[in-house]
Design a protein around this nucleic acid. Structure first.
Lengths: 330, 330
DNA sequence: TTGTAAGCGTTATCAG
DNA sequence: CTGATAACGCTTACAA
């Protein structure tokens, strides 16, 4: 528990010199530096970062707000954020909001009380921006009307790409398993779905959209509802994330429907489990790691005042065709 | 950016009173309290936690060291930790070590430099305890020789339970897909496997153990190796976690083996995807949330000096039979 | 019940 | 290049 003063005394220099030796070694004479380092080693001294942060009025910490950490896609994004943050000398505070407004507020308080320098939001809450605009906030998984600074893929085009693929396979009745209706991602992806239909001259049929909430269980339920109908049953399901697609695959299995022979299923995200479903999931790969890195850089640049102009980062997605999609049944 | 002094001035009291009004409201006269609160509201004052932490020489933060955040089991444990930590007024710093010694060290530095008050380890590194024993460290997913304080299930018995189940189903050639050989969990679970075999009067056959590293891909590969043999092929695979089991299921599928008719597969962890595999995975449910909560309490109690005697928490597991296991083929 | 005042360990300013 | 010293915002004896 030695402090900078003891180091100074032992090294026979002033505390200012010790401080400099640590933060700006180039500004101190080599001989002095050596003495200081010897003293530090001797005392096994560790600078007290609590004091440093207080003095500099900076936490060197950022908060990551995630709706559900155990979703494998978010976990990957966060890993990348943490990686980059650490490289740049920051720590990451975890804020699993469980989609609760209250918990979200309490995480934002961390910034207000100086325990964190900024926030990375993983949900695209375009609706409810942090009230206090002093709070530095960037979005890592944005959508069309997510305010800058933010990182996103073109969700509309990605969804369109998926649906065009299904159309090209001959599907005409394409069900949708959507996230919550007012979720911005749901909106964007539904928009892409509609665009593809319209371009193919097909009418949008609202009853083919089943609302879920991006969880496995909700995907299973939604698929059950869509597949329950006797006549005009969908021959394909466009699921707005992989988790719900996995749920849908399960539903198909329990209903005795063969995928992709009788039913095609698509996902979104390309989580690590996607290649391991049965059959492997056709899906949109979001560049999760790149998104995390980009969001971290965006935020840290702003925290360090060197905000670039690149405030809206749109990264490329990749459409990956695996085994869960096939020609529409005869 | 108002500070406690301004609040004091506006309220017409001393800074000490404002401080007390915030931390020990019961020690201040109701009338005074009201004045202070009015001033706080008026100025929209937020206490500077950086200063508070510095003054109290406490970070009110804990580090969670996780080998791989994107593993769904760990994510669930961490969620629970974060939840409990927040309830008790602490924040959680994320430390994804990616199984790297270097990164682990750098996370422990956070405690040494006072940025965190303690550490929760999610890997059971019984071998390499933090060198500096001033560091408060608890293990959330321990195994037989994980040092206390720690939380764990009885891995040996759980593994034995699984294998007994397979034996009861008539399996005699039970392959093992193990984690890295020197991983403590691998050891415990292999021990349980051997115990079950011995109790059934069967010999342990080393060539039936394939080493993986707890990832999906390694499970797939290991299963391929085990199932490649022509004669005396295993009729069941005991996988040491769900991810590898999912990989094994995929391997079986690509080899045209029907599960469970021709091959039984078991997992470990009961991650959220386990009920959604095809067929749904028979597995050991670890009480991930309870483990997280217990670990958090263990650590926070020690940080706050009221360390109980309950230093070694062993929680009950649950063996869940789903569809991936069945009678041994004729 | 409230006020006074002494720090906590660092960094930054300024003079030497 | 180095040293003296004044903050930073808060908590907490201790005194009143």
């Amino acid at each position: 528990m030695s402090n900078i003063r003891e180091v100074a005394r032992l090294a026979g220099v002033s505390v200012a010199t010790v401080s400099r030796a640590l933060s700006h070694p180039e500004k101190v004479a080599p001989a002095t530096l050596e003495k200081v380092q010897a003293a530090i080693a001797e005392l096994d001294y560790r600078p007290n970062m609590l004091a440093r942060n207080f003095r500099q009025a900076r936490a060197f910490a950022i908060v990551v707000l995630v709706p559900d950490l155990s979703n494998s896609f978010f976990a990957t994004v966060i890993r990348a954020i943490e990686d980059r943050a650490q490289q740049r000398g920051y720590v990451v505070l975890l804020g699993d909001t469980r989609d609760s407004r209250v918990r979200e507020r309490s995480c934002l308080r961390l910034v207000e009380t100086r325990l964190a320098d900024g926030v990375i939001q993983l949900s695209p809450h375009a609706t409810a921006h942090p009230d206090r605009d002093e709070i530095l906030c960037v979005y890592a998984c944005g959508c069309e009307n997510t305010p800058a600074p933010s990182v996103r893929i073109d969700n509309v085009r990605a969804a369109r790409t998926v649906v065009e693929h299904l159309l090209a396979l001959g599907h005409r009745r394409i069900g949708v398993i959507s996230g919550l209706r007012d979720n911005p991602h749901s909106r964007d992806r539904l928009k892409g779905y509609k665009q593809a239909l319209r371009a193919a001259g097909l009418a949008f049929e609202p009853s083919w959209v089943a609302e879920g909430d991006f969880t496995l269980a909700s995907g299973l339920e939604a698929a059950r509802r869509l597949l329950a109908r006797r006549e005009a049953r969908p021959t394909a399901l466009f699921c707005m994330n992989d988790e719900m697609a996995i749920g849908a695959l399960r539903a198909a299995k329990t209903l005795g429907l063969e995928v992709p022979k009788q039913l095609s299923v698509t996902g979104f995200d390309d989580i690590r489990y996607a290649p391991y479903t049965d059959p492997p999931l056709t899906t949109v790969a979001q560049p999760a790691e790149a998104m995390g890195r980009a969001a971290a850089d965006l935020l840290l640049d702003r925290i360090e005042q060197r905000a670039g102009d690149n405030e809206l980062v749109v990264l490329p997605f990749e459409f990956i065709v695996r085994g869960s999609t096939g020609p529409a049944p005869g």
